[in-house]
Write a protein that binds this DNA or RNA. Structure first.
Lengths: 130, 130
DNA sequence: GCTGTATGAATGAAGG
DNA sequence: CCTTCATTCATACAGC
């Protein structure tokens, strides 16, 4: 995946947002912006270590570890795993077959709609590069 | 204003675009560019048929139908509906600009922005027991 | 050519 | 768990 540069400043230097009149119109800077280290470690856990549904204690420990790399809270880790699981599953479901009546059957030879490779339907959906 | 002319090659020869030498493929095709047929059908579904949040299976069927009109993937259909909902809502909210300024009555001490369901880390949410 | 706008894509957060 | 919302980034296209 190439356009992974979602976050501009991701070096854990989340400065005090909103403390002064620094950012105009930035009232909703509340959301956690993971650092690259955060992402790297979380994906390592999820994909390589097979940590898919960490327990509370595990989540707390992970959170504690990640805090060294930047500001992070428990719920951030929790939601990250929830979302990762959900999106993995959705990707899987999206690629499963669906029974649809093929209309215009037999006439498709004229137009090569099925020219492009089948390819995975979700392609690159925010998962790690295996 | 609104550049509603979202047709890369709109003259019915979309399908033929893949037969001969394709357009230059820099890496991967950047992002999905819907054809006018795609847009027409999607809007027909959204506005006339009232399809606002199709299920996964509905999305798969819609995607398969739309594939006849040009290259499209599951996630394109999925994101299209997500974005359409979000932007319809935003537009509506912005148009009928009444916007009551969230009167908060000042009685309750506004403690934290992160008003998560569970103030302390797990409190009541510990329901996952595998 | 750059700049503004519309829109595809991504993801944190939450609801149910 | 599954679905949805909100916000943001990225990019194609139009007008200047």
């Amino acid at each position: 995946m190439e356009p992974q540069n979602q976050h501009p400043t991701e070096d854990g230097s989340n400065k005090a947002a909103g403390s002064s009149a620094n950012m105009l119109r930035r009232k909703s800077c509340t959301r956690w912006i993971p650092t690259t280290d955060h992402i790297r470690i979380l994906k390592e856990l999820f994909y390589n270590k097979g940590v898919r549904s960490p327990t509370i204690e595990q989540t707390q420990r992970i959170c504690l570890q990640l805090k060294w790399y930047g500001k992070i809270e428990f719920k951030n880790v929790y939601f990250w795993f929830v979302n990762q699981r959900a999106r993995e599953k959705k990707k899987k479901r999206s690629t499963s077959d669906v029974h649809v009546p093929m209309q215009r059957s037999g006439l498709v030879g004229d137009d090569n709609v099925t020219n492009w490779k089948h390819e995975d339907q979700w392609g690159t959906m925010a998962v790690m590069d295996p």
